[in-house]
Design a protein around this nucleic acid. Sequence first.
DNA 1: TGCCAGGCCCTCTTTAGGGCCTT
Length: 215
Amino acid sequence: MEVVAVIDFETTGLSPAQGDRATEVAAVIVEGGRVVDRYQSLMNAGVRIPAYIEALTGISNTMVRNAPPAGEVMRDVSDFVGGIPLVAHNAAFDAKFWDGELARIQRSRSQDFLCSLLLSRRLLPLAPSHKLGALVEYAKLPVAGRYHRALADAEMAASLLVRLEEELRLRHRVPQVSVDLLRRIQRTPKAQLPKCLASAGGPSSSHRPDANRGG
DNA sequence: TGCCAGGCCCTCTTTAGGGCCTT
């Protein structure tokens, strides 16, 4: 698969439209099935983090107060990822913050997002939950650190993406996994997935749910 | 004081409702 950047934000809440801002961002570059480069930074957007978010993430108001300004961090991280495709777990969420924080520094992104949540729902349909932590446990992926910290979550989402790529190659016998194929898979309704995979070179008859996970 | 998002997907559906997932 082509090089991609898996990103993750920690934020003050769920909605930039409601005034929520990013508090931490991480991006890991995935190439050849492994992480080859990493970026991580806390960021100071000048807004207060609610107590329940501090408890959830471990990111305190004191930590963010001493962090570099949000605009500076966003310039750095957007330069770091450049124009390569972005991936996030529940990408709709991270894309809102990515676009919102970039807009504040008069930048916009040129690439689209892949979503490891949508891909997991298609390719690991038997997982009891498609939360990132539940998928890490289900697929027996390494725990990269504390959940709800940006770099650890980005690393684990990257491991998940590599696992999904393996699922396509080994179980669905797709000879060449590309970003474009992943785009098509995440847009394809579940019922039409075998047809989608068959068109990618994997025999549709080989589509079996993830019965032999972890190996 | 209390409230605040939004896209995806399933089903007791499609003229809708509600759970999941992100912080």
